[in-house]
Every structure is written in C-alpha cells, then in structure tokens.
Simulated assay, not measured.
Amino acid sequence: MELSINGAKHQVDVEADTPLLWVLRDELGMVGTKYGCGLAQCGACTVLIDGQATRACVTPVESVAGAEIMTIEAITEDAVGQKVVEAWVSNQVPQCGYCQSGQVMAATALLKQNARPTDEDIAGAMVNLCRCGTYNAIAAAVRQAASA
C-alpha cells in the first residue's frame, strides 16, 4: 500500500485494517504522533488527513491510501503550522508535553479552516485532552497564532 505522508510517498506492507498510528510509529519510525487511549477520545494521536484533524489510533490505513497525511514531524513546513508552533513556544504551553503534538495538529487544522476563530470556535475545535490542564495556554496560543 502506498501512503503520502509529509509530502513523501511510503510503501508499507501491512494489513488493511491496521491503525494508521501503528503504521506511522512502528513501520515508519514517525514517533511524534503519540498513543494515548486507543479509542479516539484523547487526541494524542491527531494527524491531518487532507487537512482535517483525524485520530490515527482508529483510522484504518486502507482508508487513507491516496490521501495527504501530515504528522507533527512536518508541521513547521506548513505556514499555519509554523505559526502555531511559534505561538506554542511563546505561550509556553506544554507542561509534560505528551499531548502537545496532537494539540498542535488540532490547532493547525482549526486555523487552516478558520483563520479568525472566536473563543467559541476554539473551544469547539480544541477538544483533545491534556492531563496537565494547559487549556488556557492552549487557547491563548491559538488566538496568538490566528493574529500572527
């Protein structure tokens, strides 16, 4: 199966129902996308599939063949993603950092779809879980990235 990930083509020999997360991490060594719950609840595994925030832990790899997949490893190559990362650093968002790759991917997807989100838009889109509770800093960083 051929996958387009971060602008490069990758051939993988896996079962069609293998979760994308495991292909990224175990087959391709892209470990920036994290395993959290395995149930699409926490968002640690969020990647962009054709620009949409998607939970990789429950996404069968066969469903994304032919799609453009972006992971945290390439986020700064995207102009919006670069602004998000700069805002994350400026606002010192991470504490433990485990969920942050998924948070950055979700924020990038939001800002690619809505360049000027309201606080309500941010709250509706930024639903990934953060055990450290950095939600205020996350919202501030999204607002900063939107205004950049």
Rank of each mutant, 00 (worst) to 15 (best):
E62C: 13
A65L: 01
A65S: 13
G66P: 03
A67Q: 13
A67R: 15
A67L: 06
E68H: 12
E68D: 13
I69N: 00
M70K: 14
T71H: 11
T71A: 12
I72T: 06
I72F: 04
I75M: 12
T76K: 15
E77P: 00
E77F: 08
E77Q: 15
D78Q: 04
D78A: 08
D78G: 07
D78P: 00
A79I: 00
V80F: 05
G81L: 07
G81F: 04
Q82W: 06
Q82C: 11
Q82M: 11
K83F: 03
K83H: 10
V84N: 04
V84G: 07
V85Y: 11
E86M: 12
E86Y: 01
A87Y: 10
A87E: 06
W88L: 06
V89L: 15
Q92I: 05
Q92M: 04
Q92G: 10
Q92S: 13
P94N: 07
Q95V: 04
Q95C: 04
C96K: 13
C96I: 11
G97Q: 01
Y98G: 07
C99M: 11
S101V: 01
V104K: 00
A107L: 12
A107F: 07
T108M: 09
T108G: 12
A109C: 03
A109S: 15
L111K: 08
L111N: 08
K112S: 12
K112P: 04
Q113V: 00
Q113C: 00
N114E: 10
N114H: 14
A115K: 15
P117Y: 08
